[in-house]
């Protein structure tokens, strides 16, 4: 069937191909084409165990950004995490950032309580209130051998 010349087919093929490549790059590779759709805030954690670049940042369970970068400050013993937020997300200076796990053994993500104070954080500001991830193994150990506070009282371990 020589209805269409070879050139036409090649043209269609190349155009389609490029479209698919572009789609993959933009959608999946998280490349912002038009730039400046995001702004960054920083949060300092004493431990970022399990957190990876690209992990989502959620407010009230909805994804509003992702982890962009890590920077270690050895002197002050914390890790500064760069959080990229989509433009339009409002975070106040009493926000709390916690590292949580999705499910029991899923990916880590940062859950943000945006706070409600009068002052909004500007791009580049740091979120001061942070909660490091719960070390599950540690927790289980503490529970089994005592030391975890339950209703304010220390439970005795299984020994009792």
């Amino acid at each position: 069937m020589k209805k269409y010349s070879h050139e036409t087919v090649v043209g269609v093929f190349v155009v389609l191909g490029l479209v698919v490549v572009m789609y993959m790059t933009v959608k999946l590779g998280n490349v912002s084409f038009l730039g400046n759709e995001t702004y960054s805030l920083y949060a300092e954690f004493s431990s970022v165990s399990g957190l990876r670049i690209g992990n989502p940042v959620e407010i009230f369970g909805m994804e509003v950004g992702h982890i962009a970068d890590f920077r270690m400050d050895q002197q002050n013993q914390f890790v500064a995490v760069e959080l990229k937020f989509n433009n339009g997300v409002e975070v106040y200076d009493d926000a709390i950032a916690s590292i949580k796990t999705a499910g029991l053994i899923g990916d880590k993500y940062v859950s943000l309580d945006p706070g409600g104070s009068d002052e909004m954080l500007e791009p580049g500001d740091t979120i001061l209130d942070t909660q490091s991830p719960i070390d599950l193994a540690d927790l289980i150990g503490k529970y089994a051998f005592g030391d975890v506070k339950k209703n304010g009282e220390q439970t005795k371990g299984e020994e009792e």
């Binding site: 093929f13 190349v14 389609l16 191909g17 490029l18 698919v20 490549v21 993959m24």
Partner: peptide
């Protein structure tokens, strides 16, 4: 060189 990446993209999607 032109076709292989394009076809790979098709394959992936």
């Amino acid at each position: 060189i032109i076709s292989f990446p394009l076809l790979t993209a098709f394959f992936d999607i």
